[in-house]
Write a protein that binds this DNA or RNA. Structure first.
Lengths: 148, 148
DNA sequence: CTCTCCCGGTTTCGACATTAAACCGAGAGG
DNA sequence: CCTCTCGGTTTAATGTCGAAACCGGGAGAG
């Protein structure tokens, strides 16, 4: 994230990582998706240095992932709210979550789980699908360079 | 990525970021999914410092995302190959890609595209689904803490 | 009015990570 | 024998991060 700048490159993956590709940004978005809105709540939940949190929040606001709003209750402070753009990152977070569940946990180990609010059951694994909605296997996909 | 260690925490997102959460790792995996296998090819494709590339490759091997194999052709060098675990990250990469396409490109701007190899058409957007395969909206999902 | 605490940061500074560039050993080619 | 490429490692300069100190505004206590 530091020196290299892919923000004008042709790869959407690299551009996205330019916005949320550092250690804290996606964890901030994760907490924001869970309803966290206040500086100190992010700070406590993440345990990251306050100056870093401050700069990350500013960067996310700058890129339109978060916006600041005056106050939700009567308190005189502002809060951080996900934009629609920011909410779109829930798919990224879910993909990261499912990969971690599958590969980084022992069976039976304690973990947080994303569930369907209505039924309380865990979500289905994400699937790649073609334009008609048919599931695609690992080798059915390739990345094409842009037209010249 | 640097000091904080979430590798024994309860959140699969944080654990996953501990493995691939730094600037270069996911770009390495992206190139690996595109068939890159050799050190110098990664180096040229990414433009990152060679010592960093070296340490990232080693870390990904250590975490089981990549493995080294003796040689694919006759050359005396080893190559880096995705494990099944590593291939599972294609969903993460696709989620990042689709978010970037939707939010970080002007209409008509040049970009790489993930397509169904059979039809050549772009993939459908990823969708969250419940355990029965029914699509879920943004607010139908919540994250539950582990059982005590 | 004054004292103090809490919130939301900013500043400072030492530690650590990253970078570019130089270097190096093994193997291939000429 | 000389040189080139591959796959790194080492080195020195630079940049970034983290912990802690600091700070200003507002609220509440007395």
């Amino acid at each position: 994230m530091q020196k290299k700048d892919f923000s004008d490159g042709p790869c959407p993956v690299a551009r996205t990582l330019g916005v949320v590709g550092d250690w804290w940004s996606l964890l901030i978005v994760r907490d924001a998706l869970n309803g966290v809105r206040r500086f100190n709540d992010f700070h406590r939940g993440l345990g990251c240095a306050k100056n870093i949190l401050s700069s990350r929040l500013a960067k996310l606001v700058e890129h339109g992932v978060l916006r600041t709003v005056p106050a939700s209750d009567g308190s005189p402070y502002r809060e951080y709210e996900l934009t629609e753009e920011g909410k779109g990152l829930r798919l990224v977070l879910l993909a990261l979550r499912q990969w971690g569940e599958d590969n980084l946990f022992e069976p039976g180990e304690r973990r947080t789980t994303a569930v369907d609010r209505a039924s309380g059951r865990p979500l289905a694994p994400l699937e790649m699908r073609d334009a008609d909605g048919r599931p695609l296997g690992p080798d059915d996909v390739e990345v094409r360079a842009p037209a010249p």
